[in-house]
Design a binder for these strands. Sequence first.
DNA 1: TTTTGATAGTTTTGTTAAAAAAGTCAGGAA
DNA 2: TTCCTGACTTTTTTAACAAAACTATCAAAA
Lengths: 205, 205
Amino acid sequence: MAAVNDHQDIKREKILEASHQRFLHYGYSKTTMNEIAGDLSMSKALLYYYFPDKSQLYIAVMRKLANDYIKNLEEHIDTFANLKDAFVFQINTNHDFIVSNYNFFDFFRLNEQNLPDTIWEIVEQVHLAELNLLSRAIKTEIERGAIKPVENPEEIIDLLLDALHGIKVSAVSQKKVNFPRKEHLDEIHTKRLLLIDIFIKGLMY
Amino acid sequence: MAAVNDHQDIKREKILEASHQRFLHYGYSKTTMNEIAGDLSMSKALLYYYFPDKSQLYIAVMRKLANDYIKNLEEHIDTFANLKDAFVFQINTNHDFIVSNYNFFDFFRLNEQNLPDTIWEIVEQVHLAELNLLSRAIKTEIERGAIKPVENPEEIIDLLLDALHGIKVSAVSQKKVNFPRKEHLDEIHTKRLLLIDIFIKGLMY
DNA sequence: TTTTGATAGTTTTGTTAAAAAAGTCAGGAA
DNA sequence: TTCCTGACTTTTTTAACAAAACTATCAAAA
């Protein structure tokens, strides 16, 4: 019984890996179920034995990516010397994640408006993990007496996460590029560090 | 000669006003040249005598709005008690502008990426006006000794404007739309005020 | 110079048919 | 019983094209 499920899980994993590669390389709409099946030398029908439909398969891949990302964040909770270090870690991790999976997210760009709720749940989970990591850090910092107590630390973190997101968007939307080029990456990074620096000082006594 | 040009200018103004009302109420794509002409009891052909095409007409309206906006900013330069007041003024002015011209900007929502360069020039002019207002304010504040001297005040202002922009983007992407809905605008406004509050404290001694 | 009706040209919209891809299922193999 | 497939059906995408709506032009009149 366990052996059977193990086997199922292994197969599922293989499908997820192959799907990830396809989605990452060609995007959602340019990937067909036949191609994924072909990569694994199996029939398309078998994919439907393991996953109910294409979008669910995509979502399963996304959930896996998100879980890895979240796990990484959780492993680093309460490991920072100060609030700034926590933010620097979050910025780097998030950035790497977006960059290395950029093409995978064409699903978002295509569907734009009406994404399945499950997707938003995953996005929300990721956001909560970031929020959690940084909230712990800000609370620790408050306890340490390094910054002023605030009645709602989560709100403050949320605000700064929004602001950091804006730094990327502004740098990118300054003309017709969908994604930051290598020469922009350092600029974005520097700007974010500067923002954090000022922001955190604004929280101090 | 001068009378003739005056008359032309007046007519142009009338066309711009009527166009503004149409664009504001129905948006760019749901406004036809026939309707604008009808509002003014003139032939559609006459519109083409005064403006080369529909998009140029739209841009002319936008330029007028932008010029009024910029003029308003310039009139308030150096009239603030402190840096925060300057930022609050900028945020409020910007907020009012977006709210009262909300439907007008559906042109942006439709075209998304590939807008004519002229549009971006206008956006840049507005940005420069904001930058100028706030740079003057931050320099004054530094001279006054209220905040720490920085080697490049414009850079700091630019950073904060980016962050403020990010507040909009994040609020939007959470709600699954490309452009903020009216009901989000107040939320964005509140968050922005909170952000500048913390940010400015971060600039103090 | 200003204005317009008529009309030319272009974009959008709606329709349809073929192609491609998603998704299903009866039945065979392990 | 679980895993797997080929053949099949259904749905979606694409292309082609005609009709409609709209933008844009122009000769001629006021």
